[in-house]
């Protein structure tokens, strides 16, 4: 019996690999964009400008205070009402970028704020401009604080890509759904789905643990 289902599973395994590929693609692109936007927002959030700080604060509060699945629906179903038509794939990436950058923003701002004021003052006194201060003095030191939770956030973001299945993207979780309709062995199907997520997440979990130990030293 089991071997029969297992045989069926092997038959459709290429289908799973396609889903894994889609998941990896969404994850990779969103991690890069979330990191870029997250750093810029984090720098704004930790800046002296009250306006920038508040604006980013509102953005972060909104994103953190609403479920990701609702955010996806807003991007995919509500933006078109205002004339912004997006393909499911683009909508998924946009929703991931909005959500992930807000969390990374908080991590980055926390790291920057952990650097003592004296470092800013020393760099200011030397005549460095704002960008130089961040690039040469503040960010290199803040990375120690930023890196472990950042990698941890990457793991969460990779897992959150499963939510974009709700708008019909054929990524790993969606492949699981579709397969379960054809093979009644749901446990086996979703064990496989879970295992494939685990394969991409676990190295990052190890990396995060390692960084945490190293950066603490």
């Amino acid at each position: 019996m089991i071997s029969f289902y297992f045989g069926r599973l092997m038959e459709i395994f290429p289908f799973f690999l396609k889903g894994l590929w889609m998941t990896s693609k969404i994850a990779f692109i969103s991690l890069v964009t979330c990191t870029l936007i997250g750093f810029i927002l984090g720098i704004f959030r930790s800046s002296d400008s009250t306006i920038l700080k508040r604006l980013v604060g509102v953005y972060v509060a909104f994103v953190r205070g609403t479920p990701f699945v609702v955010q996806i629906f807003i991007v995919f179903f509500i933006l078109p009402e205002w004339g912004i038509q997006l393909e499911a794939f683009t909508a998924a990436l946009l929703a991931m970028a909005i959500m992930g950058s807000a969390f990374i923003c908080e991590i980055v701002a926390g790291g920057i704020n952990s650097i003592p004021k004296g470092q800013w003052e020393a760099a200011t006194s030397s005549g460095l401009n704002g960008i130089q201060k961040l690039r040469l003095v503040i960010i290199p030191q803040a990375m120690k604080v930023i890196l472990p939770p950042l990698v941890g956030q990457y793991v969460l973001l990779i897992k959150d890509t499963s939510v974009v299945s709700v708008i019909g993207i054929m990524e790993l979780t969606r492949v699981g759904w579709v397969t379960v309709v054809r093979i009644p062995e749901g446990l086996m199907v979703f064990t496989l789905v879970g295992f494939l997520y685990f394969i991409i997440s676990y190295p990052l979990i190890l990396l995060s643990n390692y960084l945490e130990k190293r950066m603490a030293a």
């Binding site: 003592p116 004296g118 470092q119 003052e121 020393a122 760099a123 006194s125 030397s126 005549g127 460095l128 130089q132 040469l136 003095v137 290199p140 030191q141």
Partner: peptide, 26 residues
């Protein structure tokens, strides 16, 4: 030139890099 009570050297740079930072970048 400004010298602080708590030195505020850049801890991630060597002594030489600390001193060279402004001439190179400013």
């Amino acid at each position: 030139g400004f010298v602080f009570q708590q030195f505020h050297l850049y801890p991630h740079m060597t002594v030489l890099q600390n001193v060279m930072l402004a001439p190179v970048n400013v």
